[in-house]
Design a protein around this nucleic acid. Structure first.
Lengths: 73, 73
DNA sequence: CCACATTTGTCCGTATGTATC
DNA sequence: AGATACATACGGACAAATGTG
């Protein structure tokens, strides 16, 4: 097994982009498809990653639309 | 889709058992298989559930062994 | 309003790696 | 060596919401 799971890698990279300001509050995240292609992982890995980030309050999902970076003070 | 996802149902039920003292610190959780059969769900739903509980610090997983209820003061 | 495409959210079955007994 | 169990991953599928025409 990878020492670091795909879903952690993906979550960590998105987290980094948010903290670095590359992704700002209100910004849309790339779609699941794009993330899969970008990171070379499957849908479940992306799903796990965004689920964790959602539980952490960093992003919000909106069915039918997109996921957005949350404006947390 | 169900208003309440399977993985939330499973996580919520295990959480309840821990908080009710039916599962005590140090106790083993049923295996993934048992949980699948008990709740009538697939492995991913169980995996998501225990991943959430692990992130919440309620349980700990030990590869090759079992998952244990954490003794949190 | 209806049809369609897109996207999120969820689920399943299956498979592999690794750790323990 | 073998059985068992956790941890992870993939691909495929369908529901629900949204947007567009």
């Amino acid at each position: 097994m990878p020492r670091v799971p795909n879903y952690e890698r993906v979550a960590a990279d998105i987290r980094r982009q948010i903290e670095a300001g590359e992704l700002k509050p209100g910004d849309e995240l790339p779609s699941t498809r794009k993330l899969q292609e970008h990171y070379g992982v499957g849908n479940n890995a992306v799903y796990m990653a965004v689920t964790l980030l959602t539980r952490e309050g960093l992003i919000e999902g909106h069915q039918g639309k997109a996921r957005y970076v949350v404006d947390r003070s």
